Simulated scan of single mutants.
Amino acid sequence: MFFKKINLLIFSIATILIVYSCEQNTSSENQFSKHTDELIKKLNNPNGKDILVIAHRGDWRNFPENSLEAMESAIKMGVDMVEMDVKKTKDNKLIIMHDATLDRTTTGKGLVSEWTLDSIKKLYLKNGAGNYTRYKIPTLEEALNTCKGKILVNLDGAYDFFDEAFQLAKKTGTTNQIVLKGYNKKAHEVLSDFGKKLDTIIFMPIINLDTDSDPLQTISDYQSQLHVKAFEIVFSKDTSSVLKRFSKIKEHGSRVWVNSLWASLNAGHDDNEAVKNKDSIYGWFVDHGVNMIQTDRPEMLLEYLRDRKLHN
């Protein structure tokens, strides 16, 4: 009888712990979902005063670029979106890697497309200084699970094999968090390529002011045909009239994304110059109405924006 009571007590305690654990997990998931909903709400409000911060390849100054750890660090900083690059292996698996080759960022050599995933998983990532680390190359599925409910995800280089990426997004429950980039595409081409998928993922065109013969028309077509949520604007000179029309672009329903990564993308308004004088660089973005900034220095940019009440 005594042992029956002990067993009953142990069973009761175990049941309570399981229920408590489930409640905690549900609460945590709800919290993550709520945070993601808030980020999507901000993205959908082109005239909001907040400026969204995108970490280019994650927090690569403290962890290897495009690593899960770089993504996790960006999440902890409070970044709104992490940009990641997608490549396909020899056995048609999607991994997170910027270069077409393994040489610069890993302990391997040669084309990604000539390596199987099993072989790639045996390699290690290098850090920004080129030194070997203990960190591994993630798959797209692993990256999406890491970001699920915590941060928006910008997929770069995934356009040509988006069907596979889209299936992984559905599998991980992250379709609503994804912003897909597209280069040199017209609105009708994107509509033809993706169709109904555009109802569940966000497509962002890249408009190069140096090469597009009529960028204002391209922007207008995208806004009227696809109602895009944002444009990535690239320019090596600050002479284009488009730079004075960011407010109009926002009035018509789209946020304006500009890169502060290196000079050829922003007419010299880059992160390294911001180290010397934040106001002259980040202040220029603010003054021109930019409300999404992709940066290689997310911590510094967040501090600047928060001081000016432009980021939570």
Rank of each mutant, 00 (worst) to 15 (best):
M1R: 08
K5H: 11
N7H: 07
L9S: 12
L9I: 14
I10G: 00
S12Y: 04
I13Y: 02
A14R: 04
T15G: 10
Y20T: 13
S21M: 09
S21Q: 12
Q24T: 10
N25E: 14
T26F: 12
S28N: 12
N30Q: 15
K34F: 10
K41M: 10
N45Q: 12
I51R: 06
I54N: 03
H56W: 08
G58P: 08
W60V: 00
R61H: 13
R61Q: 14
R61W: 06
F63D: 09
N66M: 06
S67C: 07
S73T: 07
A74F: 01
M77W: 02
D80S: 11
V82L: 05
E83Q: 08
K88T: 15
A100G: 15
A100W: 09
T101A: 11
L102E: 01
L102R: 04
D103S: 10
R104C: 09
S113F: 02
W115M: 14
T116W: 06
S119T: 12
K122Q: 15
L125H: 04
K126A: 05
A129Q: 14
N131P: 00
T133L: 10
R134V: 09
L140E: 09
E141S: 11
E142F: 06
E142A: 13
A143S: 15
L144K: 00
T146W: 01
C147V: 07
I151H: 02
I151Y: 01
L152R: 01
L152E: 08
L152P: 01
L155Y: 12
D156P: 01
G157P: 04
G157E: 08
F161R: 10
L168Q: 13
A169S: 14
K170H: 08
G173E: 10
N176C: 04
K181T: 08
K185A: 07
K186N: 12
V190S: 08
V190W: 05
L191P: 00
K196Q: 11
L198R: 07
F203M: 09
F203L: 15
P205Q: 07
I207F: 03
T211E: 12
P215K: 06
T218L: 13
T218N: 13
I219Y: 05
S224D: 14
Q225N: 11
Q225M: 14
H227I: 02
V228T: 11
V228N: 02
K229R: 14
K229D: 06
A230L: 06
E232V: 06
K237Q: 14
K237Y: 09
L243Y: 03
K244V: 00
F246K: 02
K250V: 02
K250T: 01
E251D: 14
H252W: 00
G253Q: 07
S254K: 03
V258P: 03
V258F: 00
L261F: 02
A263H: 10
A263K: 12
G268H: 07
H269D: 00
D270F: 04
V275D: 12
V275M: 11
K276W: 00
D279T: 09
S280G: 01
Y282M: 04
W284R: 03
G289E: 00
V290H: 03
T295D: 08
R297C: 01
P298K: 09
E299L: 12
L301W: 07
R306G: 02
D307I: 05
K309S: 14
